[in-house]
Amino acid sequence: MEQGTVKWFNAEKGFGFIERENGDDVFVHFSAIQGDGFKSLDEGQAVTFDVEEGQRGPQAANVQKA
C-alpha cells in the first residue's frame, strides 16, 4: 500500500485526487473508500491506498484513512 495526502475531494460529485509520496496525483472515486457510512475525504487528510489501472489511467483503490 502507498501513503498519500488528499489534495482535494468533492463530496457532491464523489471524486477527487490524492497526492502520492512521489508527488504525482492519483484519481480517487468515493466507491474506493473503505468503511461504513458516508464516504468522503477531507483536504490534507492522510490516507493509505493501492493503485490500479482504470479506464482513464491510474486510480486509487482500497482507500483507508490513516
Rank of each mutant, 00 (worst) to 15 (best):
E12H: 14
E43H: 14
E2F: 15
R20I: 07
G57Y: 05
H29G: 03
R20N: 06
E21R: 13
G57L: 04
G23F: 08
G35S: 10
E19C: 09
G14Q: 03
Q64N: 10
A32M: 06
V63Q: 01
G54F: 05
E2H: 15
V47M: 02
F38E: 09
A60I: 02
A61V: 15
M1H: 15
W8I: 04
D42V: 13
V6F: 03
G44V: 02
G57K: 05
G16A: 01
S40G: 08
T5L: 09
E52S: 09
V63C: 04
Q34A: 12
Q34D: 09
F49Q: 00
G44C: 06
K7P: 01
I18G: 00
N62M: 06
F38A: 08
W8P: 00
G4T: 01
G4S: 02
N22H: 12
Q45P: 02
F38G: 07
F15C: 05
Q55M: 14
F30G: 04
E19A: 15
G35I: 10
N10A: 08
N10V: 05
M1S: 13
E19L: 15
Q34M: 11
I33R: 00
A60K: 00
F9C: 03
D25Q: 13
Q55C: 08
V63G: 01
Q59Y: 15
Q55D: 13
G37L: 06
V28C: 06
E21N: 14
A32T: 04
K39R: 12
A11Y: 13
M1I: 13
D25N: 11
V63D: 01
N62P: 01
K65F: 12
Q3F: 12
H29K: 03
V51M: 13
D25C: 08
E21C: 09
T48C: 07
G14W: 02
S31D: 04
F38D: 08
Q55L: 14
I18H: 00
Q3K: 15
I18F: 02
E43S: 14
R56T: 07
E43W: 14
F17C: 04
E12A: 15
Q59L: 06
A60L: 01
E19S: 15
F9P: 00
E43V: 14
W8R: 04
T48P: 00
F49Y: 07
G4Y: 01
G37A: 07
F30R: 09
A61P: 01
A11G: 08
V26P: 00
Q64D: 07
A66C: 08
E12D: 13
G54Q: 07
F17S: 03
V63E: 01
F27S: 02
Q55A: 13
F17Y: 07
Q45M: 14
Q55T: 14
E12L: 15
K39P: 07
G44Y: 05
V47E: 00
Q59N: 06
Q59H: 09
F15K: 02
T5A: 07
M1Q: 14
E2W: 14
R56M: 10
F38Q: 08
Q59G: 03
F30K: 08
Q59I: 10
V63L: 05
A61Q: 11
E21S: 14
T48I: 12
V47T: 02
F30L: 05
A60G: 04
L41D: 02
M1G: 11
W8K: 04
G23S: 08
E53H: 14
A46T: 15
F30C: 05
G14R: 04
D42P: 09
G14V: 02
V63H: 00
G14I: 02
V28K: 00
A60H: 00
F30D: 02
Q34V: 15
A60W: 01
G37Q: 07
K65Y: 10
G54K: 08
V26D: 00
F49P: 00
V6I: 09
M1V: 15
E19T: 15
R20F: 04
D24S: 14
A32E: 05
L41W: 04
T48D: 05
K65N: 10
D25S: 11
I33L: 09
D24V: 15
F30Y: 15
A32W: 03
D50T: 15
S40R: 12
D36W: 10
E2Y: 15
W8G: 02
A46D: 10
Q45N: 08
D50G: 09
G14M: 03
V51R: 04
V63A: 03
D24L: 12
Q34I: 12
Q3L: 11
F49T: 01
A66N: 11
S31T: 12
T5S: 09
Q59F: 13
D42W: 10
Q34F: 10
D42N: 11
Q64R: 14
G54C: 05
N62C: 06
S40F: 13
M1A: 12
F9V: 04
E43R: 15
G23K: 14
S31M: 08
R20K: 08
N62Q: 05
H29I: 04
F9G: 01
G54V: 06
G35W: 10
E21P: 15
F9H: 02
K7V: 05
E21G: 10
D24E: 13
E19W: 13
F9M: 03
V28G: 01
T48L: 11
N22A: 10
Q3P: 06
F38Y: 12
R56W: 14
W8S: 04
V51K: 04
I18Y: 00
V28M: 06
N62T: 05
S31W: 06
G54P: 04
K65L: 09
K65V: 14
G35H: 09
D36A: 12
N10F: 07
H29D: 03
V28D: 00
A66I: 13
N22K: 11
A32V: 07
G16M: 01
T5W: 13
T48F: 12
A11K: 15
V47H: 00
Q59K: 09
